[in-house]
Amino acid sequence: MLHRRQFLTNATRSAWALGGGVLLAGRSARAQPSYTVPLAQLQDMVAEKFPRSVPVQGLFNLSLQAPRLRLLPEVNRLGAAMAVDAAGPALRRSHAGSFEVEFALRYEASDRSLRAHQIRLGRLDFPSLKPAVTDLLNAYGPVLAEQSLREVTLHQLRPQDTAVFDGLGLQPGPITVTAQGLTVAFVPKQP
């Protein structure tokens, strides 16, 4: 048992060295190894996916700018605030607005990515539109939020980030939102 504990401790420390400081090393065999992604890194990756255009049934298009992410550790989710422009045949001119969403995260093994899912829309706000039009946009809001953010990749783990853990029979498991960023725990691989 002592040899296994020492092996796991040494392997975890090696993973720390290989990961360039983003892998958190456990101090004992009971500590769960993990990988942490800081908010700034998440922000950079998500910014690459924007701007995005979301058409709404031929009536108008929403042009979404890169979101400003915020960590919500108390509910284990991320929040995003986005600037949005609405323009098209149903709107006589372009209207600037904003909307906020919250979402959970999941790990996608096929490409080693952390992705947004379980998206909840706050409210679309367009100060220059009539309230009835804004209410109509908010009726479409959940669908728009899903179309604009569904499965957006927030981070992608590189093979070298997980190589030591792969060798130990571990795989990414639960994702926890902390005050520092996202922490991905490594758990035993399922047979």
Rank of each mutant, 00 (worst) to 15 (best):
Q160C: 02
P172L: 15
P127R: 13
D135Y: 10
K189V: 07
T9A: 10
G19S: 12
L71M: 04
R4P: 00
A116I: 01
S94H: 03
T134M: 09
K130N: 13
Q65W: 01
S98F: 04
G181W: 06
V75H: 06
E100N: 07
R52P: 00
R158E: 11
M1V: 08
T176K: 15
Y140S: 09
Y35I: 10
R92Y: 07
L149W: 09
S14A: 09
L114E: 04
W16Q: 09
G167K: 12
F50K: 06
W16S: 09
H155T: 06
A17C: 06
R13Q: 13
V75C: 05
L23S: 02
P174I: 13
P172H: 14
R150Y: 04
A80T: 00
E74C: 00
A47C: 03
Q180K: 14
L69F: 07
P127H: 09
E102W: 03
R68H: 03
R93Q: 07
A163F: 11
L39E: 06
A185Y: 03
M82G: 02
D135M: 12
L136S: 14
D111H: 14
Y107C: 05
G141F: 02
R112Y: 11
Q171K: 14
Q147S: 09
V177K: 13
S53C: 03
L72D: 04
E48F: 03
A40L: 07
G97S: 07
V152L: 08
A116K: 02
L144Y: 05
H155L: 08
Q41Y: 06
S63W: 02
P51W: 02
P51R: 05
A81Y: 00
V164H: 04
V37E: 08
Q32P: 01
H117S: 05
E151W: 01
G19D: 02
R93H: 01
R5F: 09
F50C: 05
F103D: 03
D125A: 13
A29Q: 12
Q147N: 08
V75L: 10
R150W: 03
R30S: 14
A83Y: 01
G26N: 06
S28D: 12
V22N: 03
L136W: 10
A185R: 11
T178K: 12
G167W: 05
A40C: 02
R150M: 02
S148H: 00
A17W: 12
F126K: 11
A81S: 13
Y140I: 02
L121G: 09
G122Q: 05
K130W: 09
G97F: 02
A17S: 12
K49I: 06
R106A: 09
L121S: 11
T12S: 13
A15I: 01
L24E: 07
P127V: 12
N10W: 04
L69C: 08
F7Q: 07
P33D: 08
R150F: 06
S113K: 11
P131K: 15
R115N: 12
L42K: 07
L69Q: 05
L168D: 03
T12L: 00
L170F: 06
T9L: 15
Q190V: 10
L72S: 03
P174D: 12
G181E: 11
S98Y: 02
T36R: 15
F126T: 08
P73M: 05
P191R: 14
A47G: 04
P142T: 08
T176H: 11
